[in-house]
Write a protein that binds this DNA or RNA. Sequence first.
DNA 1: GTGGTCTAGACCACC
DNA 2: GTGGTCTAGACCACG
Lengths: 126, 126, 126, 126
Amino acid sequence: MISFEQFILEDGVPIYVQIVQYLKRGMIAGTVADGDELPSRRALSALLGVNPNTVQKAYRLLEEEGLIQSRAGAKSYVQVDQTVITRLGAELLREDVKTLVSALKQTGVTKEAALSLINSMWEEEI
Amino acid sequence: MISFEQFILEDGVPIYVQIVQYLKRGMIAGTVADGDELPSRRALSALLGVNPNTVQKAYRLLEEEGLIQSRAGAKSYVQVDQTVITRLGAELLREDVKTLVSALKQTGVTKEAALSLINSMWEEEI
Amino acid sequence: MISFEQFILEDGVPIYVQIVQYLKRGMIAGTVADGDELPSRRALSALLGVNPNTVQKAYRLLEEEGLIQSRAGAKSYVQVDQTVITRLGAELLREDVKTLVSALKQTGVTKEAALSLINSMWEEEI
Amino acid sequence: MISFEQFILEDGVPIYVQIVQYLKRGMIAGTVADGDELPSRRALSALLGVNPNTVQKAYRLLEEEGLIQSRAGAKSYVQVDQTVITRLGAELLREDVKTLVSALKQTGVTKEAALSLINSMWEEEI
DNA sequence: GTGGTCTAGACCACC
DNA sequence: GTGGTCTAGACCACG
């Protein structure tokens, strides 16, 4: 069973997006592995204090991407192979970094200043 | 007159937000300076291919933040002093970096790998 | 013992419905005859790779319709006479055809085109 | 504006699926044509007596298939070319017919009996 | 107990 | 006004 211990609800970003991202990132990090059983819609919604449908939506999106497998009446399972994970990791990583880099460059920050800031924030952040 | 050459419409993010961000980032970078004349709502909406109301909304938000000055029937002008710019830059910067760092840490990427990737993407990106 | 060789799980249609239909159609075709022994719930669920409760539900529905006979601890048997089969065949047939006809008419297909297509697909299909 | 006069809500099949099918079949029949304006989410939901979100879901699915086009704040339009319609028609038709043919063959009905039945039911059905 | 769907209504972005 | 999104809770079908 996958742990949601480290999961923290931020606001601003839709909850179902946060759940999707959390699971995707977990797949990349290896904490969410192929064949793992996902918590039921009810269980997770209770744990996070959100509506079951919010979890449902997250699960549906993941299923449309082929990352999990669910059938009515049965439990849901993670369904990823290494190829998918690798692609996913590369995608997310490039996307995240690209967003930052273009934002920073638009503001005229130098590369050195950016790297230095990231370096220092890496330590202090949770 | 401020150039919108580098402006590219992405989707997902509201258009008026993109316009606001573009101008804010320009202020920080110095390409949008105090006293600069803004394109008219009509002109900019035509240039970007969006609804004039969308531009209107962006301008209104900027005016509410005191970053531009506009008067009915007259042109709009940028109105920022250095203090404001500095605060703005620091805010945006920390926010952007924090988002990236926490995202990357969740995927299990090491600091070194992250810095190296940013370093290389900095060059290739527009 | 009845064979489930030709049985193929589709998705979209509930599994227990598929089992019921498969057996009903077999009765009409004569491949499932009065007095035949049905596979046990456990055996069939294992064979089809589905939950034993799913098979149970199918058997229960068939029993409620009086098409099979089962007793706790004993094997289940098919229990149909010719009258029932005839009625069943007519019902299923009309229902199936009605579904198709109304669907086709909605799409503006002519009767001749429909008959011709059915005629040709009859041969090629398994 | 597309008419929903002939639309009748059945139960058993999800409402949003029925809306999707109705529009698809209309496209094939030519009663729903390229460029046609769709009723607004609110209007159609009121007309059918269903929740606006149910209509929204149907429209979203159609848009994901590229059959309609909708943009926030603007009306939604049908967007199909002849190629798409042809493909759609062939798909639906083959699927419908295939379902029937395999069902009938399972029951041991002869081709002649089937064709004859369809022929007669074509007239009497609405 | 599990996932899937529908209803419901609020809110937002956009035109 | 439009479409899009989110949250919520009830209900149903399924295993």
